[in-house]
Simulated assay, not measured.
Amino acid sequence: MALTLDVSGWADDPNTLGAYASARPGRYEARDLLAQPIADKLFFAGEAVAGPYAALCSGAYYSGQAQAKAVIKALGS
């Protein structure tokens, strides 16, 4: 069985340039502030706002799920 590896052009993408989220030393709590919706109309998700899963793909996934639920609640559905 051959091993296959899927990768993206993340490092060369002009929209990301290989960037990822990081907090300045002593400013980790800023992630919690960023995770708060604005007027129940603008919601943020991703690894940057994933609490203990920050900087992980799983964090992006889990925060996306949580924010999707928050959007549904805000819409009253």
Rank of each mutant, 00 (worst) to 15 (best):
M1N: 14
A2P: 09
A2F: 09
T4P: 13
T4W: 14
D6C: 15
V7I: 15
S8P: 06
G9T: 12
G9A: 13
W10S: 11
W10R: 12
D12E: 13
D13R: 03
P14F: 06
N15Y: 14
A19Q: 12
Y20A: 15
Y20D: 14
A21V: 08
S22K: 14
A23K: 01
A23G: 08
R24H: 08
G26V: 00
R27P: 04
E29D: 13
A30K: 12
A30T: 10
R31G: 01
R31K: 08
R31E: 07
D32T: 07
D32A: 07
L34N: 00
L34S: 00
Q36V: 04
I38Q: 11
I38C: 10
D40N: 10
K41F: 09
F44H: 04
F44T: 03
A45D: 02
G46K: 01
G46Q: 00
G46T: 00
G46H: 00
E47T: 05
V49I: 07
G51I: 07
P52C: 09
Y53Q: 12
Y53I: 13
A54D: 02
L56T: 09
C57V: 11
C57T: 10
S58M: 14
S58Y: 14
G59T: 01
Y62D: 10
Y62F: 13
Q65N: 06
Q65R: 04
Q67D: 04
A68F: 05
K69P: 05
A74I: 04
A74G: 03
L75I: 07
G76Q: 12
S77V: 15
S77M: 15
S77E: 15
